[in-house]
């Protein structure tokens, strides 16, 4: 599904990702953990195609396509979704209208029929219900006046409606209380299947307790320095990231 080889990404000439390798197969959930400043969010933005995040060498392939050659909207239509760490407020743009426009733009780009408003509303209402979100949010402007937790849950609603092949979730757990965290985890688990893959970027183990990742990677200074199973996340939680330094000194 996603093959990243020796990826280097620079922002404003400063290299942040320094030779990252990652191979995500269909249906797999990979967790990427790491301390602040290790390059986690940069990886998410580089995958989604944010301007200013320059791939200086290496490659990112998504289902055999070179991602660097695609615009952000083309990546979305190809099936890539990024849940933002800080979802953006769009004043004046109705949430439901936005989401349906986005869905239909993707479908159009793929040569599929547009979705009528009844079908759309049915899907989005189910997602909202699952995440215990008020339907009134559909009539509000995108993320405007949403609480931190509502914004994060809204990202999961968008994911559920857009049905990506690969979802990159950038610290979707940060700022959530334990109840909201469970809802978000359930929302993610409800979307898991044998085809859909996830890259879950997180600081903490607690979300992973609910998600049971297939692979856990530790990102430090722009590289993956350790990979393993769930036990790696537990070790990080117990020992903190300081063991990385010990490992690199050894």
């Amino acid at each position: 599904m996603l093959k990243i080889k020796n990826l280097h990404v620079a922002i404003g000439g400063e290299e942040i990702i320094k030779g990252l390798d990652l191979d995500v197969g269909a249906g797999e959930l990979h967790a990427i953990m790491g301390p602040n400043g290790s390059g986690k969010s940069t990886l998410g933005y580089a995958l989604a195609g944010r301007e200013g995040y320059e791939v200086t060498s290496g490659s990112m392939e998504f289902e055999g396509q070179d991602l660097t050659e695609l615009e952000p909207e083309e990546r979305a239509a190809a099936g890539l979704f990024l849940a933002f760490q800080y979802p953006v407020e769009i004043p004046g743009v109705n949430n439901a209208y936005f989401l349906r426009s986005a869905l239909n733009a993707q479908r159009k780009a793929r040569g599929e029929e547009e979705v009528d408003s009844m079908t759309f509303l049915k899907t989005v209402r189910e997602s909202l219900k699952g995440l215990k979100m008020d339907e009134a949010l559909l009539k509000r402007a995108v993320n405007e006046g949403f609480s931190g937790g509502e914004k994060k849950r809204n990202e999961i609603v968008q994911m559920a409606v857009l049905q990506p092949k690969l979802a990159v979730l950038d610290e979707t757990d940060s700022g959530l209380d334990i109840d909201a965290l469970k809802l978000v985890a359930e929302g993610i688990n409800a979307q898991r299947n044998a085809q859909r893959s996830f890259v879950v970027i997180t600081h903490y183990q607690r979300l992973l307790d609910y998600l049971a990742p297939d692979h856990v990677h530790v990102l430090s200074d722009g590289r993956i320095v350790e990979s393993g199973g769930e036990e790696l996340a537990e070790r990080l939680e117990a020992e903190g990231y300081s063991f990385l330094e010990a490992a690199s000194e050894a």
């Binding site: 989604a48 195609g49 944010r50 301007e51 615009e71 952000p72 909207e73 990546r75 979305a76 239509a77 979704f81 990024l82 933002f84 979802p87 953006v88 407020e89 769009i90 004043p91 004046g92 743009v93 936005f98 989401l99 426009s101 986005a102 869905l103 733009a105 993707q106 780009a109 402007a141 968008q158 857009l162």
Partner: peptide, 25 residues
């Protein structure tokens, strides 16, 4: 830029994303 990028990551082509932002304003 951040709003434009957000809309594009959801699949809206750049012209459509700009129109939506202008409309919202």
């Amino acid at each position: 830029d951040s709003a434009l990028f957000y809309l594009r990551t959801r699949g809206l082509p750049v012209e459509q994303a700009m129109a939506l932002l202008k409309y919202g304003f």
